[in-house]
Design a binder for these strands. Sequence first.
DNA 1: TTTATATATAGACTGATCGTCTAGTAAAAT
DNA 2: ATTTTACTAGACGATCAGTCTATATATAAA
Lengths: 208, 208
Amino acid sequence: MENSTPTRKRGRPLKTDGSNMTTKEKLVRYGTVILTEKGLASTGLDEILKTVGVPKGSFYHYFASKDDFGLAVIQHYETYFANKLDRCLWNKNRTPLDCLADFIEEAKDGMTRHAFKRGCLIGNLGQELGALNEKFRVPLEKVFLDWQNRVADCLERAKTTGQISSQTDSQEMAAFFWIGWEGAILRAKLVKSCAPLDLFAKHFFNSF
Amino acid sequence: MENSTPTRKRGRPLKTDGSNMTTKEKLVRYGTVILTEKGLASTGLDEILKTVGVPKGSFYHYFASKDDFGLAVIQHYETYFANKLDRCLWNKNRTPLDCLADFIEEAKDGMTRHAFKRGCLIGNLGQELGALNEKFRVPLEKVFLDWQNRVADCLERAKTTGQISSQTDSQEMAAFFWIGWEGAILRAKLVKSCAPLDLFAKHFFNSF
DNA sequence: TTTATATATAGACTGATCGTCTAGTAAAAT
DNA sequence: ATTTTACTAGACGATCAGTCTATATATAAA
């Protein structure tokens, strides 16, 4: 048997080794991918460990439990996604509402590129663990509230440009957006098509 | 040790015994409950078997595999839910749109009664297995299409009573309904409140 | 009545995989 | 030189889905 990845040295790694912080990072990074596809319960630790090339002992050095790992993955995804959202929503060459439409287009690209297998990590784990596990429920909902605020801010900007009525309840519309959007992603995975995403987007923009 | 449930008789059951079909039924019935709460992967066979009081041999007599059992549970839920839907939607004392609102109220009652832990089996399994397992994806989507048709029919009736414009695309609105509704259920489980359901319902009815 | 067969229960057993933990190695710090 | 820190290695018991053999009995066939 031969190792595909160069065998990790035992013992404490060299301080000067630039890549010594990457073990945890690699775990979280691949965890984000695989948990988005398969969820937490269906994903075996061994699968992650084998893919990343990290022994079990290391995993439990970095994370207290599998749940703890899941929480770290959520945190990682939260900032990754918030950046993505802001990059779209703060585009100064576009009107606020077009910014939101751009985000939708980018998400559609991502869904298509991954053959409708991934969707949204927060939605997936929310469905799997939200109702069952209080340890996950609260952080998961916090992520949604954060995203909701970013969209609400975007809608507030759309008011100042006169793109939507100043009477609009931005928070409510932002909540409506994420509720419907997550539903659309779930359905898009089922039909393996962007049609549900487009359909929701159309009705969302029509309701201003 | 004493048996909580009266011990099942060994051997081939009486043809005339009215309750001889109940073993399989009991499995499916409890399966519907537990799979709605925890999904397929997170639920162990032993847990189901112990709760229902059925030995493993019986389970694998009735079902070829755990997946096969999951498919049977889906089928059972499909007809149960279709009946529930029709009971609401064909209420002759109410206008078609009020019928839909009644269904929403009934669903809200159910969610509250089960402390926001259950939600919708099809949505849950759709999220868990839809993208991964083709064996589940197709039947799951079929269920949504069936429900969609029932709502579309209801909207057609609303046209004849003049409650909504005859220009409305019933199929599209019905699709929009289930997309948003499943998203709302997911979110309601996260916040342990009916607010997301109400919020989606409000915007849905406003878009006619 | 006797025999054969179909139906279903009963639960021990298997091999794989689960998450967790203890022991050990080696660099770094003292 | 000794201790501490950082990390690896794999053993561990529990549990998983699934299989198998044995048993009991209603029904069908003789």
